[in-house]
């Protein structure tokens, strides 16, 4: 009997272990080793921190890195601010069929591939696009306006792409808050803002943090949206990694960039958890 459960346990664990080791652990170990190589001649390599030094010494790389981090944090905050009322409405105010319908509406954009969705934004925002034409037609502007290829366009794209990943954990934590607790707050003299601040947000904290972590990581690692909506000057760190690997064929530097990004995202997730007093078990469980 004991051997039977053991076997079952091993069988259930195998796909997960294969997944983790083949797709995550082994590539990362290899990438780490690659990032520590320095090419000293044709086909000759030495172990050295040269790639990491290149990253630190080149202002463009550092600047792009910082910019990507700040923009991702900002995108996460905007997603939270936009997503919270949406999630609150769906979880607490909408009832029955309306509730499922609204939830479905949040989900619908994800039936289309990210590429198509981003093209949708391009159709809206480009110089000859829907918004520009509409404004001209209404006589509000006199020439076509280019709304693509700037930071605002990137931000719109990032927020739009990650909305669902913020709304879903928020709906589930807000849904678990008993309506009577909110009513008790009102009954005891609380006003709207104080109930939001003292009761609803503390309760929703695990959902807020887990949503933020997911959205932050998605934004930081996003390649398509910044490239398409931000154009050539978008300066997104994933683009640098891409160009090192694919364009420059400098796998060593690309691997180093990849590792720097991994360290950054791990650090920010850790810092967020520490700052909000949450634990990974609480937010992900």
């Amino acid at each position: 009997m004991r051997d039977g459960t053991r076997l079952g346990f091993i069988l259930l664990l195998t796909p997960l272990l294969l997944w983790l080791s083949l797709l995550i652990i082994i590539p990362h170990i290899d990438m780490f080793l690659v990032s520590l190589r320095e090419r000293v001649g044709v086909g000759k390599y030495e172990i050295s921190p040269a790639n990491y030094l290149t990253f630190l010494q080149e202002p463009l790389y550092l600047w792009t890195f910082m910019r990507t981090a700040v923009m991702s944090v900002l995108a996460t905050l905007i997603t939270l601010i936009v997503g919270f009322p949406v999630a609150y409405y769906i979880a607490k105010m909408a009832k029955g069929r309306i509730q499922s319908l609204l939830f479905l509406l949040c989900l619908v954009p994800f039936w289309v591939s990210e590429l198509v969705r981003t093209f949708g934004w391009m159709i809206l925002l480009r110089e000859t696009g829907v918004i520009s034409s509409l404004l001209q037609y209404l006589g509000l502007i006199h020439g076509p306006v280019e709304m693509l290829y700037n930071d605002a366009a990137i931000m719109i794209g990032l927020v739009y792409t990650s909305m669902l990943f913020m709304v879903v954990p928020l709906i589930s934590t807000l849904g678990s808050l008993d309506d009577a607790v909110i009513e008790a707050g009102y009954d005891l003299g609380g006003s709207g803002p104080s109930i939001l601040w003292e009761i609803i947000i503390p309760h929703a904290m695990p959902g807020i943090v887990s949503g933020c972590i997911v959205v932050f990581m998605l934004s930081l690692g996003n390649y398509l949206t910044p490239t398409m909506l931000g154009g050539k000057d978008s300066l997104w760190f994933t683009e640098l990694i891409y160009s090192q690997f694919i364009v420059r064929f400098n796998w060593e530097l690309g691997a180093a960039f990849g590792f720097v990004l991994l360290i950054l995202s791990s650090f920010i997730v850790w810092a967020t958890l520490r700052l909000t007093g949450q634990t990974l078990e609480k937010t992900m469980g």
Binding site: D178, A180, V181, E183, A184, E198, I199, P202, H203
Partner: peptide
């Protein structure tokens, strides 16, 4: 309240 509705976060 019926289920008392104490604030679990405090």
């Amino acid at each position: 309240f019926q289920h008392l509705a104490l604030f679990p976060m405090m």
